[in-house]
Nucleic acid binder design. Structure first.
Length: 786
RNA sequence: GCCUGGGUGGUGAAAUGGUAGACACGCUAGCCUUAGGAGCUAGUGCUAAUUCUUAGCAUGAAGGUUCAAGUCCUUUCCCAGGCACCA
């Protein structure tokens, strides 16, 4: 009587065994080659872990286990992005404190991740909300501060009226809050910034060297948004100052018919003439409360200032307007209006009856192919004359602009790392001494409710301190850091998580970094991934690291949607929890199915019905132990070699779905042959073990091994073993498939034609006497043209 | 509008320019079973017919290159994701 496969007992047994034997512990000081396989730091939300979260973790675990079998020392850690708004909001809602909420969520997440059989070294677990971690987040702040790369400035910020906090540009894409989808307002307040813009050029230049998805690299390039052009200074009639504009097409200066400045531009008061003051005030009053999203209209509103500028190339007098289609944040907050060669300027000119003057015979397909039609350089291509024109314009210079803005990092919320700054009446803004870190979050706050004022101001215990300079009474900065700061350096901490003095031991960091394979969702294409690159470059400059890119290879995991094709969410009731699938089908089946259902990077709709195929497969794997035979079939050897090669290739390429197909093909073959040798069975189990670590471990031990399958080596392909001797060759006649013939491998054209001649069916279809041409690709195809 | 990806059976999907649809789900028939939402066997792109065979048609559409195109080139339509007044 054959026993069925009882995953519940068996998986439990091996989970305990792996824990007890510390099977997945990383030896940081190893002499072996290293591989750092990392998942993006999960946010332990109260909603729990669902099947979509698992997919990425299984993919990285497959790779980690594969590389372990290939003889690498593996660092495959896990931790928690534990600070943040949702936890704080949940705490407010339930009356619990964020510490407890976080602990509960982490423990739930961790349990499921262990159940799924990830080969994680849990000794290296990190938690960004733990003081031993955020001490170094604060240290990072101080290091940046000392280099002038962290600074407080009053500036317009994205404000979420619902979360009552500031958001970064990356968190407010499209003018809505990333967390709650509310519309963003623009507020002008004191905020802390990291000057990522200082690194714009380097962040851009290193993109080509990354083994990342093209789309992500392109997104970063666009986000950084480098444009080369010129800054041109315009004299203003009857005024003693100039107005600077930025343009990428300085050659069109001949066609400037007006100047437009942004409504937020501080020069407006000085430029506006008396008689236009009321108009201008009204205009600005009407547009300023509007959010950016409302400003993105094709209607180009604007108002005349009453003043005129002088075009430096031809001394033409041109009107200066104010319009909200000009953005203060980019360039100089003023543009030259060239309606003939700019769509927006044309819309504006048409609406406000402004002149249109052509400069170029514009080539619609390629601007570079346009020729000048007026001025000194008439008849020449734009590209050749640009530099000369910049030279010709008095007060013009080459200028490069970036769309990238500084990184806003301060938040008016409680559940984050406090910014280590002290305000002293005598000394002003003073950084906390490094030796005084961490600045610990207080435990005397019970009401976190967002009011717009940082909650930490309510804690006297926290706020009151002494000035590190003069020892006088002083107050602490009450804002906390955005969680993206926590996660901008965490990948370093896994290497040396207990280090009390530094981010991590320098030698260890340099040995283990960069991350060899980084797996996570594409939603972090510009936020987290750009911040991490910036921080790595900064720490490189500071001499802590000898590498300047943190993630060598990046792979995105596709989202899993609910069975109803909507995003998995409590709101729709379509969440398939990790717990449910693991309880129902076990870890091996869950893992295999998540890898099998579609290409890894692709989004998918969950389908519980389809999981049965993998379940059947696992049951068949279990039954292989009953058909072990001493006699090896030649086809069995061929199939085994092929399996090893294919799976090897597919894991390397991240084509996880295709390796699962290979296992199934192999299984079909073995069942057809009716037996398998112990040796081949072992090889099969080892190649399967990265995907199905439990059943492969159990069967390996049943085969008599005392040591874990996960400590064995990837099987070798036998080169001198039996190879396929015959193949089926497709036969085409005039380009159409008419049949196949079974031939010896590497047969000559002559042999093949003879064989076709002997084939009753094929020879009837071909006029073998009148062959015009034969195309024979060895072992691939033969095409006979009559 | 711009930047990425994609359009292949009833479904998820495979295919270094060389037998399109591997592998799996589903479906159909049969076996086994008290039962099947378990298991096993066979079949399954579409359309014809003279149906154990054969022919034609099939990878969003239209052209092109080639002995040969899902794959390369040109035009075009549609879908998904991202960005979007960046001068």
């Amino acid at each position: 009587m054959q026993e069925g496969y009882n995953f519940k007992e068996i998986e439990k047994k091996w989970r305990e065994f792996w824990k007890k034997t510390e099977l997945y512990k990383t030896d940081i000081y190893t002499k072996k080659n290293k591989a750092y396989i990392l998942d993006m730091l999960p946010y332990p939300s109260g909603a729990g872990l669902h099947v979509g979260h698992l997919k990425g973790y299984v993919g990285s675990d497959v790779t980690a286990r594969y590389k372990r079998l290939k003889g690498f020392e593996i660092l495959h850690p896990m931790g928690w992005d534990a600070f943040g708004l949702p936890t704080e909001n949940f705490a407010i809602k339930t009356g619990k404190d964020p510490y407890t909420v976080t602990e509960e969520n982490i423990s739930e997440f961790k349990k499921e991740l262990i159940n799924v059989g990830l080969s994680i070294d849990w000794d290296k677990e990190i938690n960004t909300s733990h003081k031993d971690y955020y001490k170094f987040t604060q240290l990072l702040f101080l290091k940046l501060y000392k280099k002038g790369l962290a600074e407080k400035k009053k500036s317009p910020v994205n404000w979420c009226p619902s979360c009552k906090t500031v958001l970064s540009n990356e968190q407010s894409i499209g003018g809505v809050c990333e967390r709650c989808d509310n519309q963003i307002e623009i507020k002008i307040i004191d905020q802390w910034y990291f000057k990522i813009t200082e690194y714009a050029e380097r962040l851009l230049n290193d993109i080509p060297s990354l083994k990342w998805p093209v789309s992500t690299k392109k997104m970063q390039e666009k986000w950084i948004g480098k444009s080369k052009g010129a800054e041109i200074s315009f004299k203003i009639e009857n005024k003693d100052f100039n107005l600077n504009i930025f343009t990428t097409k300085p050659e069109t200066i001949y066609g400037v018919t007006f100047i437009v400045i942004a409504p937020e531009n501080t020069l407006i008061d000085k430029i506006t003439t008396k008689e236009y003051q009321t108009d201008v005030k009204n205009y600005i009053k009407n547009i300023s409360p509007q959010s950016e999203i409302e400003r993105k209209k094709d209607v180009k509103t604007g108002v005349f200032t009453g003043s005129f500028a002088i075009n430096p190339i031809n001394n033409n007098k041109i009107p200066i307007w104010i319009a909200d289609y000009v953005l203060m944040e980019y360039g100089t907050g003023a543009v030259m209006g060239v309606p003939a060669h700019d769509k927006r300027d044309l819309l504006f000119a048409t609406k406000h009856d402004l002149k249109v003057e052509f400069v170029l015979d514009e080539n619609i397909k390629d601007y570079k192919q346009s020729k000048m039609i007026i001025g000194e350089y008439k008849g020449k291509y734009v590209e050749e004359v640009r530099d000369n024109i910049i030279k010709d314009i008095k007060g013009a210079k080459h200028k490069t602009e970036y769309k990238l803005r500084d990184w806003s990092i301060s938040r008016e919320r409680f559940w984050g790392a406090p910014i280590p700054i002290i305000y002293c009446d005598q000394c002003g803004e003073v950084p906390v001494k490094e030796s005084d870190l961490p600045v610990i979050l207080p435990d005397d706050i019970t009401n976190y409710k967002p009011t717009g004022v940082a909650p930490l101001t309510k804690s006297d215990q926290f706020m009151n301190t002494k000035c590190p300079n003069c020892n006088g009474d002083a107050k602490r900065e009450a804002k906390t850091m955005d969680t993206f700061v926590d996660s901008s350096w965490y990948y370093l901490r896994y290497i040396d998580p207990y280090n009390k003095k530094e981010f991590g031991n320098k030698d260890s960091l340099n040995k283990w970094m960069p991350v060899d394979l980084y797996i996570g969702g594409s939603e972090h294409a510009v936020g987290h991934l750009l911040y991490s690159r910036f921080i790595t470059k900064f720490l490189y400059d500071e001499g802590y690291l000898n590498f300047s890119e943190p993630f060598e290879q990046l792979k995105h995991v596709g989202l899993i949607y609910g069975e109803d094709k909507r995003k998995m969410s409590k709101r729709w009731g379509n969440v398939i929890t990790a717990k449910f699938v693991l309880d129902e089908y076990g870890a091996d089946v869950t893992r295999l199915y998540e890898m099998f259902m579609e290409p890894f990077e692709q989004y998918a709709f969950w389908n519980t019905n389809a999981i049965i195929g993998v379940k059947r497969f696992i049951n068949r794997v279990w039954k292989l132990q009953y058909i072990i035979s001493k006699k090896e079939h030649p086809e069995e050897t061929i199939a085994t070699n092929k399996l090893i090669q294919k799976v090897d290739e597919y894991i390397k390429k991240g084509k996880y779905n295709l390796s699962v197909s290979e296992y199934m093909k192999y299984m079909n073959k073995i069942e057809e042959l009716g037996s398998i040798t112990k040796e081949n069975f072992e090889k099969f189990l080892i190649t399967l073990s990265p995907y199905a670590p439990f059943i492969s471990e159990e069967l390996f031990s049943i085969l008599g091994h005392n040591e874990s399958i996960h400590l064995s080596s990837w099987p070798q392909v036998q080169n001198n073993s039996i190879k396929e001797t015959h193949i089926t060759l497709p036969v085409q006649i005039n380009g159409k498939l008419r049949g196949t013939i079974y031939i010896e491998i590497d047969s000559s054209e002559k042999t093949v034609l003879e064989k076709i001649n002997k084939d009753d069916k094929l020879s009837q279809k071909i006029d073998l006497e009148n062959i015009k041409k034969v195309i024979y690709v060895k072992n691939k195809i033969i095409n006979i043209l009559n």
